[in-house]
């Protein structure tokens, strides 16, 4: 099941920070990891991913370095201390949000029952 763009919009940076926090990754790998870990619920496209990666890098939440792989240059992203803080904040935000949504939905279900 695919999630609507509107719903996914606010959580993209959180997902990206989260997967990079586990290990350094490059763009294509990030897309594939999110796709796999979410069981294909989230499919990021390039137009969304790279601007987010570059913004997070500009905000110093991520750092990058280049490696040689398969005969070409590959850019890896690494989370910074600031990025970890950002991730923690966003995670907390998400938990509050999802708990509140859950409560409302649970309440509605209860009322309907």
């Amino acid at each position: 099941m695919k999630i609507s763009k509107e719903l996914a919009k606010g959580s993209t940076a959180l997902l990206v920070l989260s997967v990079i926090s586990k290990r350094d990754m490059y763009g294509y790998q990030i897309i594939k990891t999110i796709e796999m870990e979410s069981e294909e619920v989230f499919t990021l496209n390039e137009g969304t991913l790279y601007p987010i990666l570059h913004s997070l890098e500009a905000e110093k939440s991520l750092e990058s370095y280049w490696c040689e792989a398969e005969g070409r240059k590959r850019k890896y992203y690494k989370i910074t201390a600031k990025g970890l803080e950002e991730l923690a904040g966003r995670e907390q935000e998400w938990k509050t949000f999802s708990t509140a949504v859950g409560k409302v939905l649970g309440g509605a279900k209860l009322a309907g029952a």
Partner: peptide
């Protein structure tokens, strides 16, 4: 830089 990064992506 962005070109190199996207090239790698397309090649993948």
């Amino acid at each position: 830089n962005v070109r190199d990064e996207l090239f790698d992506h397309l090649m993948c």
